Computed example of a mutant assay.
Amino acid sequence: MKYFNYIMIVLGAIVAIYAKTGTEQNQYILIGGIVLLMVGIYRISKTIPSKNEDEDLNNDEN
């Protein structure tokens, strides 16, 4: 499942770049690529623990 997030990011970036390079830009494809990119980044960022959680746990113990 972890690799799925990275695939979404890469695929979204490729689609967004592809939509941007054409002479006749298709905005729907560009938006779709950006959405894939952002969803992939969001899903990865959910797995990163917060720095504040560690500080809160240490303060509660004291």
Rank of each mutant, 00 (worst) to 15 (best):
M1W: 07
M1A: 05
K2Y: 04
K2E: 13
Y3F: 09
F4L: 13
N5M: 01
N5P: 02
N5F: 07
N5G: 00
Y6K: 15
I7L: 09
I7F: 07
I7P: 02
I7V: 15
I7Q: 04
M8I: 01
M8F: 10
M8Q: 10
M8H: 06
I9E: 08
I9L: 12
I9K: 04
V10K: 01
V10L: 13
V10P: 00
V10Y: 03
V10S: 07
L11T: 02
L11I: 01
L11G: 02
L11K: 02
L11E: 00
G12V: 08
G12Q: 04
G12M: 04
A13K: 04
A13I: 03
V15M: 02
V15D: 00
A16C: 04
A16F: 06
I17V: 12
I17W: 05
Y18P: 00
Y18A: 03
Y18E: 02
Y18T: 05
A19F: 03
A19E: 01
K20V: 11
K20C: 12
T21H: 08
G22I: 13
G22F: 14
T23G: 15
E24Y: 12
E24C: 06
E24M: 10
E24R: 13
Q25E: 12
Q25D: 09
Q25S: 10
Q27C: 05
Y28C: 05
Y28K: 15
Y28L: 14
I29E: 06
L30A: 09
L30F: 10
L30D: 05
L30P: 00
G32N: 06
G32E: 07
G33H: 01
G33W: 00
G33S: 01
I34D: 04
I34S: 07
V35N: 03
L36P: 01
L37P: 00
L37A: 11
L37Y: 04
L37C: 07
M38E: 04
M38S: 14
M38N: 05
V39Y: 05
G40I: 03
I41W: 11
I41P: 07
Y42N: 09
Y42T: 03
Y42H: 09
R43G: 09
R43K: 12
S45I: 05
S45M: 14
K46D: 04
T47Y: 06
I48A: 09
I48Y: 08
S50L: 12
S50M: 04
K51T: 13
K51M: 14
N52M: 15
E53G: 06
E53W: 13
D54R: 09
D54H: 11
D54G: 11
E55N: 10
E55P: 02
E55G: 01
E55K: 09
D56C: 01
L57T: 03
L57G: 02
L57N: 04
N58T: 13
N59F: 14
N59A: 15
N59C: 08
N59T: 14
D60R: 07
D60G: 06
E61G: 14
E61W: 10
E61H: 08
E61Y: 13
N62A: 15
N62Y: 15
N62G: 14
